[in-house]
Design a protein around this nucleic acid. Structure first.
Lengths: 202, 202
DNA sequence: CTTCATGTTGACCGACCGGTCATCTATGAA
DNA sequence: TTCATAGATGACCGGTCGGTCAACATGAAG
């Protein structure tokens, strides 16, 4: 039982690493199998297709996020606005560590995949959409709490949350293009200045 | 002379369209040649490699940008802050038009390519970097003028300009993932709220 | 008429792509 | 001891990948 799952897990984590570090199209199944020390036939025993593998990889990474530093960043005990700084910091240190080890910034797996395949694969696009929605909800919640505590004036918290997520993805994109994680630290703090006012009720 | 350049131009515009609508890896040279009605041998007469084609495509698109709506948006006669709105509007209408025609949002060619290949190809990454730098300078200039005119308090205009570019790329990424250009119109205006203060001189 | 540069043609290359399949092995329940 | 099931193996498939090449067309300069 442990052995069976081990093969699947090895495939999953290898694929995740390769997809993140390069791209979906650029990584072949053979390469994944070789690195994971799995035979091709075994691969297709666990995953019906490359698309299914991608779906599983997205789920895997999203789970790790949700239980990892995202859970820490959006800890309910942290003051709402500090969670934003925490999130930026986490992104920075993660990307910096990756660059220090491999020499290049992988960026955000979800953002990478989204831009690469969302015009070609609606299933994967929908999956990534759901991941972004969930992330957006974290920002949303933090903003609502900040308003409740009187830390910021009322605002369109749902739209602002989406804008913050977009900004986060944007600075990671720019940092990756510059291959310089410091971009995240330099621009990131501006996330707290983003504001979308509530629409006029009349 | 016109005929010779015509072949090259046909390859270039076909490749640009396909790369933009799908991705770099997903579009083969044969497909480009077929659509452009060019023989493969002819292709390699004009472009030594697929990488060289990509470089030319980036240049081509950057030129069209610079002389097209970016020139309009950053028109010196426009009040600096209105240029930001103009830029957002232009992005929105472009993406909306593309989606209405083809059913899907292509996003930003530069952003797409940046995330797809900047970990694998330093030459292309550098090229895209230069494009982003140039775009950032437009924002920078607009911000400096806005400060000069007293429209906004002094700020770190260079960093804020980069943040604005990142935000623009971010909302296009999010809109593409949602396959909904309205995201650009809904979140875009928040670009004017972005601010990075000048660092303390001591 | 020859020469040369610029383009064009389409067959061809080895490598790799995602995916299939028949065959074998290990395990555990009946 | 038998049998079913889960998993592992590696050869194999048609198709596509980026790229090469020798032969040929065209047109202007000498």
């Amino acid at each position: 039982m442990n052995v069976e799952h081990d093969t699947r897990t090895r495939i999953l984590s290898t694929a995740r690493e390769l997809f993140h570090g390069r791209s979906y199209a650029d990584v072949g199944i053979k390469e994944i199998c070789d690195l994971a020390k799995v035979q091709k036939g075994s691969f297709y025993h666990f995953f019906p297709s490359k698309q299914d593998l991608a779906l599983a990889v997205i789920d895997d990474m999203a789970d790790d996020w949700a239980h990892g530093f995202v859970a820490e960043a959006f800890d309910q005990n942290l003051p709402p606005l500090e969670r934003l700084d925490y999130m930026i910091d986490a992104a920075y240190y993660w990307q910096k560590a990756a660059k220090d080890i491999e020499g290049r910034m992988p960026g955000c797996l979800f953002g990478n995949l989204a831009l690469e395949i969302s015009t070609r694969d609606d299933v994967l696009r929908a999956k990534l959409n759901a991941v972004f929605d969930k992330a957006s909800r974290r920002f949303h919640e933090a903003l609502d709490q900040a308003v409740e505590l009187g830390e910021i004036p009322p605002l369109d918290s749902e739209a602002t949350a989406a804008a913050m997520l977009a900004f986060l993805e944007g600075i990671i994109l720019l940092a990756k293009t510059r291959n310089n994680p410091e971009v995240i630290r330099d621009l990131g703090p501006a996330i707290k200045t983003l504001r979308i006012e509530l629409a006029h009720p009349n």
